[in-house]
């Protein structure tokens, strides 16, 4: 999939990724957008491991700023490093929303949100959908374009249904490949 083309068509896109190919997709997408300034929200890999994966796969992360909601749940972590902001847990939706809102005022091009599926470990689908709706409103007012990831595992169908009304387009990669 040409991610940059999709991002140019829509302000917000929900990308449904087949779980078995999830890792190769996130690397491929990051590679495509890496020439631009990107905010990368990670809810399932630590910042360190994500950078390790990206570096190994040749993804340039120089223009990326990460928001890591995982590291603090498993180890002692500073609040911030030059290219990453650490929040307490994926369930800290207010903190997550605040830091993203702050960054939306900065000159970033894209927001990659990885992923809505992980939020459902901490929150029911309705608060997750509300969080998404609020975030989409803020994105609409900014210059940033956003890609939200979700996995196509069975129990996520309802989450996807709740969320799809808020974004400009839903792209199901299992149907396009």
């Amino acid at each position: 999939m040409d991610v940059l083309e999709k991002l140019s068509e829509n302000k917000t896109t929900l990308l449904i990724i087949p779980s078995e190919e999830y890792n190769s997709f996130i690397v491929g997408i990051a590679k495509q957008v890496s020439k631009n300034k990107v905010i990368y929200v990670t809810l399932n890999k630590t910042y360190e491991s994500l950078k390790e994966i990206f570096n190994k796969k040749g993804v340039n992360t120089e223009k990326m700023f990460f928001i890591d909601a995982i590291s603090k749940t498993i180890k002692k972590t500073p609040d911030q490093t030059p290219d990453c902001y650490f929040i307490n847990s994926p369930g800290a939706l207010t903190d997550l929303s605040l830091i993203i809102s702050k960054l939306l005022d900065e000159p970033f091009d894209y927001l990659l949100f990885d992923s809505l599926t992980n939020l459902t470990i901490y929150e029911k689908k309705t608060p997750v959908a509300k969080f998404l709706a609020g975030l989409v409103n803020k994105i609409e007012e900014s210059k940033i374009r956003a890609l939200f990831y979700a996995l196509n595992v069975g129990q996520q169908d309802e989450l996807i249904k709740e969320c799809e009304m808020f974004v400009d387009e839903v792209v199901d990669l299992s149907k396009t490949i």
Binding site: N44, K45, T46, E48, S49, I70, I74, K75
Partner: peptide
């Protein structure tokens, strides 16, 4: 763990 950590983080844990 479903969370991916780096090798260094794993060793630390």
């Amino acid at each position: 763990s479903v969370v991916r950590t780096s090798e260094a983080e794993k060793e630390e844990l």
